[in-house]
Design a protein around this nucleic acid. Structure first.
Length: 583
RNA sequence: CGGGGUGUGGCGCAGGGGUAGCGCGCGCGCUUUGGGAGCGUGAGGUCGGAGGUUCAAAUCCUCUCACCCCGACCA
């Protein structure tokens, strides 16, 4: 491609709207163009990156038995009513009506349609297992889009669905998909960390997320460097400290004026925060939930929601609290009525904690679970924290941020039951199809790769997904000999199958070099009067400052070699890491 | 949905009652030519939108829309 033809305008200054570095570079490099909040066009360069990623996706999906299909983006609401998600999902599901006033939805995901396909097509165990996938548009009216392609309201997703006759067969298949995912990200040249995760709105029994570790990530992960334990903080467990072995002491009210926080309380009473109980309040389906964790810990909302079986959980507001007779800052699980009390297992085991007295200016010493109050539920609802003991080996956990670039779920029969997708087994018994669901966001992968693969000058694409392999900078193009050599080399490389972006513009060297760096093409070749003096061209890797002159007679071979090296460097890093059978 | 911020030419910004400017980019000409050139000369703007105040509004007032950031939420 000639730079004079390429639909791409690079910017010298960073657009003010972009905060995230990777996003800034994609805008400056002319990769993407915003149309509305969280809605982007992919321009030719980004489209090429997307196409390369999609090619990897197709190859790896095909390798684990996937068959590509395309499902519609517009669905009849009836399908979503059948599984209940029409009612369960909020405004992020885009709903519309056709001219006959029929309700329609725009696909935010495709489980319903897959299950519908299955119920229409599958009758016998002989047809299973089957793995279907597509690379399709998803629409989600996000409450808040973010970071350019990182979180958008319309995006392309590779979604795959495996369909099995039994849970055993899904369990056997799931690790294959797990490995396929490691292959995909490895081949794309990005390092990901697989973590156990919450099943969220998708439902199901087991899930992993593939996380690209970066500060701009929206998720928090708990990682153990010693034994390799890794989990999304939403579900991460940790080994809780053994509480002090103490006799229960008598309950005692103390005056604590103006101490509405745990920190103030522990200072006033001269006790560690770990000797206090902290209350937090949530509302689920109009029902108030009173959560208690030890004062030095935080409530993990996901764990809490899962513990009480809630679809949705939100912090309670002041009005709801006062209606329930709860005094914020001095709340106590003792003597509150008509609310669900959920107590963290550590609090239930800890003697003589200080808790609120449910009366402004007073707390209670020596509260003891079982003697002074009971709970509707005792469960692990505390959030893992930096330095918390690993649940497997007790080493301190690290909390880091990451971007979820892919996820895999054991869905089970939620959708096949909802839509009645069943088959007859060997014995002639009707059974529901057991499903797995596997997603990768293409745009998000582009955005997070841009975030991770860059330096102060611009992007540095892994060669496997770079829009072009070579940036050919022709300098001194007014010189007929230089021009004809550059043109010849462009043709020559093209004939050799090398993907070249040829900068044939009438620009100064600095402009071309800066653009080459900004766009992040892995290799740069320079042809100029200077290089032609030795009948050579200059070759440089984007990732290195080193340059070398290569005779024109060898340049095509040399470049092909370099490309091969760069590819091998990436492919050699692809992890072979079998998924442990039991997690 | 709560909190904060910003809307002035393609991009970055200034101006703050008297009819719009700077830098970069863009067109043309000459010079220059290995890390974002110089000079000259041009083109390009309903100052986000609507209403109001005023002799006069980019500027003041009211409403509204859009975009960004934090939170809530989320694959």
């Amino acid at each position: 491609m000639r730079r004079t033809v390429l639909f791409c305008e690079t910017l010298r200054e960073t657009p003010a709207e972009a905060e995230v570095a990777g996003h800034q570079l994609l805008l400056r490099g002319g990769y993407i163009q915003p149309l509305a909040a969280g809605i982007y066009s992919l321009l030719p360069l980004a489209q090429r990156v997307a196409t390369k990623i999609e090619q990897i996706l197709r190859e790896e999906m095909d390798a684990v038995g996937g068959q590509e299909i395309t499902m519609p983006v517009v669905h009849p609401a009836e399908l979503w009513r059948e599984t209940g998600r029409w009612y369960d999902i909020g405004p992020e599901l885009v709903r519309l009506r056709d001219r006959a006033h029929r309700d329609l939805v725009l696909a935010m995901t495709h489980e319903e349609v897959v299950a519908d396909l299955l119920r229409r097509q599958v009758r016998s165990y002989r047809q299973l297992p089957v793995v279907l996938y597509q690379i399709q548009t998803k629409v989600r009216d996000e409450p808040r889009s973010r970071g350019g392609l990182l979180r958008t309201r319309e995006f392309t997703m590779k979604d795959a669905y495996s369909c099995h006759a039994s849970y055993e067969d899904l369990d056997r298949y799931y690790p294959q998909m797990y490995q396929a995912y490691l292959n995909i990200f490895g081949r794309a040249g990005v390092q990901v960390t697989a973590v156990q995760s919450d099943v969220g709105m998708m439902g199901g029994t087991m899930a992993h997320e593939f996380m690209l570790l970066t500060e701009i990530g929206e998720d928090q992960l708990a990682l153990c460097d010693t034994c390799g334990y890794s989990a999304n903080r939403q579900v991460a467990t940790f080994r809780k400290p053994e509480p002090e072995a103490e006799e229960w002491l008598p309950l005692e009210e103390v005056e604590t004026p103006g101490t509405r926080t745990i920190a103030a309380l522990s200072e006033l009473l001269g006790i560690p925060e770990s000797r206090t109980a902290k209350a937090a309040f949530f509302v689920s389906a109009e029902h108030l939930i009173f959560a208690v964790v030890r004062g030095d810990m935080e409530v993990n909302e996901t764990k809490l929601a899962n513990a009480v079986g809630a679809q949705e959980l939100r912090p309670a507001n002041a009005e709801e609290l006062s209606k329930a007779g709860i005094v914020p800052g001095y709340a106590s699980p003792i003597g509150v009525g008509s609310v669900t009390i959920v107590v963290d297992d550590l609090v239930a085991r800890s003697p003589n904690l200080v808790a609120g007295a449910n009366r402004v200016g007073y707390h209670l010493r020596n509260t003891n679970y079982g003697r002074d109050y009971e709970a509707g539920l005792v469960a692990d609802i505390a959030a893992a924290y930096e330095g918390a003991p690993c649940p497997h080996c007790s080493s301190p956990l690290r909390i880091v941020r990451g971007v979820e670039v892919g996820n895999i779920f054991k869905l089970g029969t939620k959708y096949s039951e909802g839509l009645g997708a069943a088959f007859l087994d060997e014995e002639g018994v009707s059974r529901h199809i057991v499903m797995g669901s596997y997603g990768i966001g293409v745009g998000r992968l582009i955005a997070s790769t841009a975030e991770v693969c860059r330096d102060e000058r611009g992007l540095v694409w892994p060669i496997t997904i770079a829009p072009y392999e070579v940036y050919l900078a022709g300098l001194d193009l007014a010189d007929a000999r230089v021009r004809s050599t550059a043109e010849w080399l462009y043709e020559e490389l093209d004939r050799a199958g090398v993907e070249v972006l040829y900068d044939d513009r009438d620009e100064r060297a600095g402009v071309k070099f800066n653009d080459a760096d900004l766009l992040g093409i892995p290799l740069r070749i320079t042809v100029s009067r200077r290089t032609l003096q030795g009948n050579s061209a200059e070759l440089k890797r984007r990732a290195s400052a080193e340059t070398r002159y290569v005779p024109l007679s060898d340049i095509t071979v040399e470049v092909s070699e370099e490309i091969r090296h760069l590819r091998e460097e990436i492919l050699n890093r692809v992890e072979q890491e079998p998924l442990a059978a039991e997690e």
